[in-house]
Design a protein around this nucleic acid. Structure first.
Lengths: 218, 218
DNA sequence: TAGATTGTTAATCGATTAACAATC
DNA sequence: TAGATTGTTAATCGATTAACAATC
């Protein structure tokens, strides 16, 4: 039984980068990877890497670093990435298709097993080997396939309506790529992926940089 | 001449949501929008909205809220979204294509005027009305079109090489959708858009929710 | 006027960073 | 052993939140 620190967003967001480096070290045949090296690669402070890695419970070895194989397992376990999760993509446009084909996801246990679209022209096609069904079959197929996670890439105008259907069909987690603040019950998790926020950051960094030549913030 | 507080990431990330609500209020014919209402819509604290909006310099009116039209202008101006910016997409796959067609970007002044791809099969096609060129012409076309912003959606394996070309051709800002930590000179701005981080957050929220029924963190 | 809302100043909270002993 | 690196404890920094006077 793992302990649950309710700990915390910034660290969790950095874990995937650490995982990637650990996997690269493993491929390279290294037995250990140091926090110092990770920090160097990612332009972070070593103390921050050590602090972050402490949430995985893996003990490092002075002078060597963290044991690569246990570290990988611990991060994957912490994120639940060591168990397969089936998901659907709702909105089989370019973005939905891109996400279906994203190579990292399967590595993280995320399998996109079906797509749904309102466009009859898309129905019957596939997105990266997964079938695309009409959106009218959304609820019934969520139930029959026992899906818990949905990736939402429909036009904003339809986002809330589709989310409501998802929830009533039993979906417990929505990865929301629309700019709509979804209204869902308390027991449903929503992760918003807001491209405009990212572009706002880029815009602000540009302005600051051109004005002063200053520092970065992610 | 605007003042530059070097202020700050979390607030800046929220500005686009405020902008969207302000525009909706404008369409609805409202003259003012209150921080209280914005907070309610976005599940934020009113004090946080007021604090965030203070960086735009717009003064609200007690009992009414913030004047919609000046607020929109101020946010757009703060983010430099009131000026047209031409950009290219490097990697004209599904993700690049999805970004090219993202309706919000043009509204924010971001025009994707060309795509580039290594696949000869893609060259000569278009992504949302913009031509796709061979990646061999990247440097020369950046110079001739005088482009400052590039959106990077190539496979990880090529990310650093392409970024190096971009920089040497004069690109000053890279919106990086790969999971590679790019090495670029000091005067080049990079905004990383890491899908794995988002999925890590979703995964952790699911685990916490199922373990305890707890709170959210974006 | 009464009451809702703003904006300022101060307090709290959480994340990052510093210092340093422990250790391989 | 010497020195690099970890992990803990404390300090700092920045963001969020609270309190409340000002005001429309």
């Amino acid at each position: 039984m793992p302990k649950f620190k309710v700990s915390y967003a910034p660290s969790v967001r950095r874990l995937p980068s650490y995982l990637l480096l650990a996997k690269q070290a493993q491929e390279h045949g290294d037995e250990y990877i140091s926090g110092t090296l990770i920090a160097l690669e990612l332009s972070l402070e070593p103390i921050q890497v050590r602090k972050d890695l402490s949430i995985t419970g893996i003990a490092g070895k002075p002078k060597r670093g963290y044991p690569v194989v246990p570290l990988i397992s611990a991060i994957e376990s912490y994120l639940n990435w060591d168990k397969r999760v089936d998901a659907i993509v709702v909105g089989a446009g370019n973005l939905g298709s891109a996400l279906s084909g994203f190579p990292g996801f399967k590595q993280h246990g995320l399998y996109i097993v079906a797509g749904f679209d309102a466009d009859p022209g898309k129905v019957g096609s596939t997105i990266h080997d997964s079938p695309v069904y009409p959106i009218s079959q959304l609820a019934e197929r969520i139930v029959s396939m026992n899906i818990a996670v949905a990736i939402l890439t429909v036009p904003s105008a339809n986002a809330q309506d589709v989310a409501t259907i998802l929830v009533s069909a039993g979906i417990k987690a929505i990865w929301n790529f629309t700019n709509v603040k979804l209204k869902v019950p308390d027991d449903v998790v929503v992760q918003n992926e807001d491209l405009s926020s990212g572009y706002a950051m880029l815009s602000m960094k540009r302005r600051i940089k051109s004005a002063l030549m200053l520092d970065d913030a992610d």
